[in-house]
């Protein structure tokens, strides 16, 4: 039992600098149909030095992802015209998407039954409950992927 540190409530805001340092994974595709969330992610990620593109529906999201121009794909599971799960499977299937270099991070507010969650964990590189992380915390999470 040693140093009793008084925690500083403002520490949270000041500890990790968001900007500064060029991110290695620069290009991000956000597949997200909720406009407000898209706007918030766009703002926070752009500020942190990322190039961001937002797509709001499944089929066009898949098409865009298959251009292989992105380092990171943030994929919502509830998107129009195609479930995020289907999209994820297509991206991981070498026949439909050969040599995908992107890391795929699931961003969702819908928590799945066990079997579905297992499936996701096997195929995705990360899983985030959107309500649990603010846009800034999301940026920090993405920065942690570079380590």
């Amino acid at each position: 039992m040693q140093d009793t540190t008084q925690s500083d409530p403002n520490q949270q805001a000041s500890t990790t600098p968001i900007t500064g340092g060029e991110p290695r994974y620069k290009n991000i595709l956000v597949i997200e149909d909720e406009h407000f969330i898209g706007e918030l992610y766009m703002r926070a990620l752009t500020k942190a030095g990322y190039n961001v593109k937002i797509i709001i529906d499944g089929p066009s999201g898949l098409k865009e992802a298959q251009t292989n121009a992105y380092d990171i794909i943030l994929l919502d599971l509830m998107i129009p015209n195609m479930t995020g799960m289907e999209l994820l499977k297509k991206l991981r299937d070498p026949n439909s998407t050969p040599n995908l270099k992107s890391k795929i991070i699931i961003t969702t507010n819908l928590e799945q039954a066990d079997e579905a969650k297992d499936e996701i964990e096997k195929q995705a590189d990360g899983y985030i409950v959107k309500a649990e992380v603010t846009p800034k915390q999301l940026v920090r999470f993405l920065q942690s992927l570079e380590r």
Binding site: F36, L110, K130, T134, P135
Partner: peptide
């Protein structure tokens, strides 16, 4: 829970801004 979380995500995001 999903329906509650979506506006919460948005609220938390804008408050952060």
């Amino acid at each position: 829970v999903h329906e509650l979380r979506t506006p919460l995500t948005v609220l938390r995001g804008y408050i952060e801004v």
